[in-house]
Simulated scan of single mutants.
Amino acid sequence: MAGVSGCLKYSMFFFNFLFWVCGTLILGLAIWLRVSKDGKEIITSGDNGTNPFIAVNILIAVGSIIMVLGFLGCCGAVKESRCMLLLFFIGLLLILLLQVAAGILGATFKSESSRILNETLYENAKLLSETSNEAKEVQKAMIAFQSEFKCCGLRFGAADWGKNFPDAKESCQCTGSDCESYNGENVYRTTCLSLIKELVEKNIIIVIGIAFGLAVIEILGLVFSMVLYCQIGSK
């Protein structure tokens, strides 16, 4: 009868212990944000129409799942429990399948999401020249974005601001080489639309890279747990 590899057993334990610690940290942070006074101030400080607790609730669920999987992997490896290792394998496999499904859906609807982004930005471009309360909120965010990323307007540059240009003039002022003249002011020639698209594309690449890295780790976890499961069964 073949014995259980000590190297594989303790490698599996160490891997899942780190997994469990990560889950504990995520869960602890999410609970703190959910129940503490300071945490609530942090997550409700933004001016958006979505429920700020949705993301926190998702973090609580993710942290809990990671903790449970880490616990199953650690105990299954140390106690050489085939039942725990099998539960760990099934849980990790389900997560991997969900990631693959999400990746396929993301690739399928990539063109659709790009179209929705363009339509949203074009609608926001119209709000820059309006005076409603909704328009003022968008304008406030755009002024901050222009100041940070050195751009002006969304579609047609400074002209997007219309009669509201005096309010955004300071954030549009250009002192470098990429400048053009508008209403007697030197403003950035680059529109914020192109920069926003670049930021979205860069973030998507980062998300894909993280998802790929997690998938590799999960596949290794699946392989190690199944090898250990088989070794325990043949011991």
Score class of each variant (00 low, 15 high):
C7L: 02
Y10G: 12
S11L: 01
F13P: 04
F13D: 13
F15K: 06
N16A: 08
L18C: 12
F19W: 05
V21S: 04
T24N: 03
L27M: 12
R34Q: 09
S36M: 04
K37T: 15
D38L: 09
D38S: 13
S45P: 01
S45T: 14
G46A: 12
T50M: 00
N51D: 09
P52L: 06
P52H: 08
I54Q: 11
A55F: 07
N57G: 14
L59W: 05
A61V: 10
G63L: 00
S64M: 00
I65P: 10
M67E: 08
G70W: 03
L72C: 04
V78C: 11
R82E: 09
R82H: 06
C83F: 02
L85Y: 11
F88M: 03
L94Y: 08
A101Q: 05
G106D: 06
G106M: 02
T108R: 02
F109P: 10
F109W: 12
K110C: 03
K110Y: 14
S113H: 03
S113I: 09
S114D: 11
L117Q: 10
N118V: 14
E119L: 13
E119Q: 06
L121N: 04
L121W: 04
E123K: 04
L128R: 08
I143V: 14
Q146E: 12
Q146L: 07
S147N: 09
S147F: 00
E148K: 12
F149S: 06
L154N: 02
L154I: 15
A158C: 07
A168P: 11
K169A: 09
Q173D: 06
C174M: 02
C174W: 02
G176E: 02
C179P: 12
C179G: 09
G184I: 05
E185L: 03
E185R: 00
Y188K: 05
L195T: 15
E198A: 14
L199K: 03
I204P: 07
V207W: 01
I208K: 00
L214R: 02
V223N: 07
F224L: 08
V227Y: 01
Q231G: 06
Q231R: 13
K235E: 13
